[in-house]
Write a protein that binds this DNA or RNA. Sequence first.
DNA 1: CTGAAAGCGCTAACAT
DNA 2: ATGTTAGCGCTTTCAG
Lengths: 328, 328
Amino acid sequence: MDDVADRAGVSQMTVSRVMSGKGYISSKVRDQVHAAAAEIGYVQNRLARGLRSEQSSLIAVVLPTLGNTVFTEVLRGITDALSAQSLRPVFGLTEYSEDREYELVRDLLSWRPAGIVLAGLEHSDQTRRAIDASGVRVAEVMDIDGEPISTAFGLSQKAAGQVTAQHMLDKGHRRFVYAGSQSGADLRAGKRLEGFRQTVREAGGTIVSEIISSQPSSMVEGRRITAEILSGGDRPDAIYYSNDDLAAGGIMHCLAEGVRIPGDIAMAGFNGLPYLDALPIQLTTIQTPRYDIGFQAGKLLAMQGEDRSSTASQLVDLGFELSVGRTC
Amino acid sequence: MDDVADRAGVSQMTVSRVMSGKGYISSKVRDQVHAAAAEIGYVQNRLARGLRSEQSSLIAVVLPTLGNTVFTEVLRGITDALSAQSLRPVFGLTEYSEDREYELVRDLLSWRPAGIVLAGLEHSDQTRRAIDASGVRVAEVMDIDGEPISTAFGLSQKAAGQVTAQHMLDKGHRRFVYAGSQSGADLRAGKRLEGFRQTVREAGGTIVSEIISSQPSSMVEGRRITAEILSGGDRPDAIYYSNDDLAAGGIMHCLAEGVRIPGDIAMAGFNGLPYLDALPIQLTTIQTPRYDIGFQAGKLLAMQGEDRSSTASQLVDLGFELSVGRTC
DNA sequence: CTGAAAGCGCTAACAT
DNA sequence: ATGTTAGCGCTTTCAG
């Protein structure tokens, strides 16, 4: 900055004001400074800026995985919301481990981020304490069934499970199998299953079995699980998959093996991923506002305490929609 | 750090040494310091550390999009490679725009990252100058057909196009349609097409038409394009898709409409995405080492100039493999 | 509208 | 093996 100041014939402080766009500067001086900066290829040092102003324009993002389209869309939403304010996401992946989440939160906090995004509402006490002590603003995403740290954007996972169950029951199905993945580490999927179970039970239906693979969810794994289910002696009426990727794998299995959907077996998924529209059979699923969840979380953290009026903890329900296809 | 030092009864510099793990510290003092830090919940300030040491443990990552699985896998590879050294990725998305890439590079450079990852080898002069001036280490990913800034990890996109063409020609196909997306903004896809064209031409085949959608690539878009191609009067022998998502859409169209593959129409894609294994018909495609590309790029940037011996610009060919399915 | 002085929290360099 | 001193590049604060 000193070099730029010399070139522009002003003080270093004036350069600082021009760069940060704060304070009153005559347009003549501003132009001189910009010209000088361009000539020598000056690039701000945000480490210094952040150190002095006790505020870095970084947003910490801690997500379970990038292997699930859901989180890449959330991340896109966050990134888009931030880019207007030239805030940047720094991120880490937990692979659904609470311990790993804590490590990442600790580490990311050392960057003095302007905010932090976390997936879900369940975090270890350590994690909560570290965040509390740091005073960063937090946005939790995807889930609203529980107590948020401050603000959570998402949908009721439990209600999604209930709505799906009700629809399947209405279609006359009574004997279900649940197909999940990740060894049940995905807590949101667990809540959906809980809602599903409850509604099925109340209607007198049965969940014949719950098959939970140890693998990450994928179409291939969905196809494998489905083959396993259908090869068993006791075929259920319908399969409730923990998400669309697994369900799409189920559709593929049936397409390949000539199993009729929903005649031989009915199916439902969760998420409403775009590619479902390309499949030969439309999957019945729950459409979730993933991008919007990310975008709104990003926007909240982006507005610098301007509107910090609502300090109280809040649950922002962005809703979901049952998308009825031809699989049940 | 002063507070920790007081508690531990040592100087602040000793705390610094313990925290950064540099220099000789008696294990007794180390334990005292760690205990004191834990008691008051001390969290390092990396902004200060970075400012002083002229080196932040951030790696800038600039990718075109997260809408393409390819880049999420590259990003996973990068993230995994970095996490061992507790380096964190800060990132931005260009949406395939060179101008946006420049803006992002400028902005990310202000964090004084230890390294930067860029997609492809084509960058504006401005971008190259900014990077040059900053002196950061660079890793370019995915492409090796061209002149890298310093080191590029990837595969020959052109060769991939040639290999695909040769295989399709060997299978007896002569009249092709190329199906692409993004209005051709994806330069790697362009290089594949170039290789494809060349091999087809040399063998006396014909590319009947090149259909390039303005949409981002997706299965839905692939299905739409395929419907369009097959409804035309002049049906080609085969379609070469710029990637697997489009090709999978093509398969879906044929499955839904009863078009026989490869009897009525043959197909090939690019990438070798995992979900292809779940489809009823195995797509012929090119398997690319996306995760590994990201991982190696991350590793290079992670090793702090330890092995900066090879300053010369380098192309690291991580290869690809033709994966022969049942679509051609 | 512009400038001077001080200091954010660390680590490099030099002492001991 | 530990301590002292100085200063990284910026912004806050106070003065004009």
